[in-house]
Amino acid sequence: MKPRPFTYVRPHSVAEAVAALSRHGESARILAGGQSLVAMLNLRLVEASAIIDISRLTELSNMRVVGNALEVGAAVTQNRLLTWPDLAKRLPLLAVALPNVGHFQTRNRGTVCGSIAHADPSSEIPLSLAMLGGEVVLASPRGTRTLKAQEFQTGVLSTSRAPDEMIIAGRFPLDKSRTAAFREVSRRQGDFAIVAIGAYLKDADTICLGIGGAADRPFVTDIALGKPVTDQIEDIVWQLGGHEDIHATPHMRRDLVRRLAPIVIEEARA
């Protein structure tokens, strides 16, 4: 299918983008990589009066270390973040999670912040951001504000972004761990995860465990290594809320978490 007609806006600065967003109102959408948005426009799952294309804004195409976090601009693609030279050393969770994001071809255009904005509960990038305690930077005519990942994503495809706000950057805290592990179950490599699980060692006795695809948003919790892991996982699977769709029943998702989580935790300890 094809998108319904819309007005296309190409701003030359973030200020112009924010102004266009206010002017066109609630049904305007920000287009960065378009790997989710254009598909949804094609399927007419989303209707937009205006599309504001920020993909060429040089202001938003930077990755830089700010304090103890990597700030990723809203036009930076997923494959570009994958080639950040310090990724494996300073953001090991992203180094193992990002190869699961879509396919090589969609990562070439799909953006890191676009994935955060889309807020799919099975997405790897919002899950990683939540696990690392990262932040989302939003701009509007009122200025900028920063939200914790967990405050930003409120449910399935829903966030606390106001209609006149746009994401300008995501901040991923660096050096949270030296190693990390990530695995997911999907019908085909690169398809939406039925269940995605990430883990990293927080300190000698604690694992940070993150679960995607099994609830309406990323689920992040601590696992105490001094206590039996399977008992703790059994508690967790009943907290996930029983997300059901065409791919899996809540029962299957709980079972996948039971089987996958101990493997990922073990890998994260190694």
Binding site: Y8, R10, L31, G34, Q35, V38, A39, T106, R109
Partner: peptide
């Protein structure tokens, strides 16, 4: 490499 169906002609 990119999907040309997920890119607008004007882009």
């Amino acid at each position: 490499a990119a999907r040309s169906c997920l890119t607008l002609a004007v882009q």
